[in-house]
Design a protein around this nucleic acid. Structure first.
Lengths: 206, 206
DNA sequence: ACCTGAACACCGTTCAAGT
DNA sequence: ACCTGAACACCGTTCAAGT
């Protein structure tokens, strides 16, 4: 059994197994308590073996973040699929609900997507990264916000409105995770999402 | 010189010196790279000496967070003092700008206030904590949002509007810190703050 | 190509012992 | 009361060596 599993790693799935297990460990004990040595121990593998698949611990965390971002995208896509196609405000609310629900259900995944390289000051001078976190999920948001706007609204205005909506719902998720609010932020957040969508829809002259 | 400094610690200021130096180290290398041993080395003190003043590393970080929260409060208070007393929307914008400016100038302090116990799932069942982060700064925000509302507006509505505004500006700060936006979020954020204040003021029937 | 064993330079934390 | 020295059980990472 052990030897079979061991042999399997030689077939190229240590990387995948490590990511799966690391995601579980992060979900249980938090990303901060995740150690490569504990992970290796868990996989019945030598610590050094992981370095054949990840350059260092940060690379492992980055791969984990990539997975988490894909999961967030999928969750938002699902939330959108369950919303009425014609009702743009309802779709925006559904997107916000999906975002908050994901942050609640997978706080570790949410964290690793948005708080990676959390303690490093190193801002690479070769340009901004961060296209990944903005990529998939933000495109969904822009589409929904665009559908809310009049047919020939300027793209720049839609971009700005989408950023604003993202900041709003992201802030709600962050404050809720932080428990920086006495009482039940979750139910209030739902009301605020609806208010926000309504106000945005009303902001366009008709 | 060294002996004089050493003797000074016996006079009860190791705790303060440790916090000062820890704040510096966190500002330079990020909170994640802060180690008690390096801190002790830096203070020419044995690692164990710090445990006379802090229960463990988390306690040191919590004390650091307390300082950072006070600094944020002071910064917001200052931003408000420089804004016209009568112009409530301008005061809201000033508060938002102060928040964003603080997050930009002291990313480590901002982080430690809002992302402490970042990797832990442990939600204490004895009730919610998080009164501290909401305490000082949020009271300022509630006052400003209250001044924006009609004289006899219901308190619950003001609370909700203040939470909404907090979430919005906090989200902007988080996304900006994350560089999760191609291009210059800082200047766009300023526009969005003004839009937000205007929309909030307009949301009250007159 | 993929993994092991052993080593290096670190950690956080504890505890007896010093002054 | 406050600090030191030494120890324990961990880390991340590297590197020769195995298959």
């Amino acid at each position: 059994m052990v030897t079979a599993a061991r042999r399997a790693y030689h077939h190229g799935n240590l990387r995948a197994a490590a990511l799966d297990r690391a995601a579980q460990l992060a979900a249980d004990g938090g990303t901060g308590n995740l150690s490569l040595r504990a992970l290796a121990r868990d996989l019945a593998v030598s610590p050094a073996a992981l370095y054949r698949h990840f350059a260092d611990k940060d690379a492992l965390l980055a791969a984990l973040a990539e997975r988490a971002l894909a999961a967030l995208h999928a969750a938002l896509h699902g939330a959108l699929a369950a919303a009425p196609v014609a009702d743009a405000p309802a779709r925006l609310v559904a997107l916000g609900r999906g975002y908050l629900a994901f942050a609640r259900a997978h706080p570790d995944a949410f964290r690793i997507v948005f708080e990676l390289r959390h303690g490093a000051p190193a801002q690479r001078s070769d340009g901004h990264r961060g296209e990944q976190p903005a990529g998939g999920p933000f495109a969904l948001l822009r589409d929904v916000v665009g559908a809310l706007a009049p047919p020939r609204a300027p793209a720049a205005r839609i971009e700005r409105a989408a950023l604003s909506a993202w900041a709003f719902v992201h802030g709600l998720a962050a404050l809720e995770r932080q428990r920086a609010w006495r009482g039940d932020l979750a139910t209030v957040a739902d009301d605020l999402l609806r208010d926000y969508a309504r106000a945005l829809a009303a902001s366009y002259p008709r």
